[in-house]
Design a binder for these strands. Structure first.
Lengths: 133, 133
DNA sequence: CTGAATCCTATGCGATACTG
DNA sequence: CAGTATCGCATAGGATTCAG
């Protein structure tokens, strides 16, 4: 197969010739959603199984309740997670990945693995630039 | 091989037990950088070959000069792109992917392909939620 | 042509307090 | 427990102008 960079480049050249409208471009649309600080973290945590609201809050200690709710709502409307409310007292709400959400684990895992493998190189590059300045 | 969601979940469970410090977590660090509106777009455009500043500005019509410069600088300090300045008059600056930047094309392509393949499903989910409200 | 500098606005996000 | 409502700040990022 061709080099990934070539394939990626070709793809974008084809796009910008035709429809580069940000509302229609799937990639820009996706990145505008899951490109925030929390979406990917929550998806990664939900990948290990359904979790309750408070469990997610503990798993991602530095998220506020506000952002946890908001991010989960966005992920729900985009079809990544399913929200299951048990009408008990006190209420119990369980979040889980939908099939769509699970399928997203594949590209996300690719990103995570790249980050792990190349983080040292990125840090080295930063150190070089810092020293040059 | 195991399911990607399982692998992703296991990875994050192992992490949050140990070092979930955002300054050290490679994934959070990476996403804080290329999770913005422009980084991935520029990387994708550079994937098709070296480009000059003005060519990139044309390729991504809705980026301001300010953000184009700033984003390219960040990508440069992180070792994704190389900046080649020709000291002519007027100056000519060419940006190209480093080997690190090229290697990132692989996971990015995975993300792009997922977005293309599943965008319709995401839109359908949004439509369902909009109608339910 | 490739920026740097300045100004301004929009909004992401945290903190806190309240509710069923 | 699982939110909602309100406030306020810090930052992303556009528009414009200046410079080498």
């Amino acid at each position: 197969m061709r080099d990934a960079a070539e394939a990626l480049g070709a793809k974008f050249q084809a796009w910008q010739a035709a429809a580069f409208d940000e509302t229609r471009c799937p990639v820009r649309n996706l990145l505008d959603r899951i490109g925030d600080r929390w979406s990917t973290l929550l998806l990664a945590n939900l990948a290990s199984g359904p979790q309750r609201f408070s469990a997610l809050a503990r798993a991602v200690p530095d998220i506020s309740k506000r952002m946890l709710t908001q991010t989960l709502r966005t992920l729900e409307t985009d079809g990544f997670v399913h929200r299951d409310v048990q009408p008990t007292v006190p209420p119990s709400v369980t979040y889980s990945l939908t099939p769509l959400g699970r399928s997203f684990a594949t590209p996300l895992l690719g990103l995570v693995e790249w980050a792990e493998a190349n983080f040292a190189d990125v840090c080295a590059a930063r150190a070089r630039m810092a020293e040059a300045a």
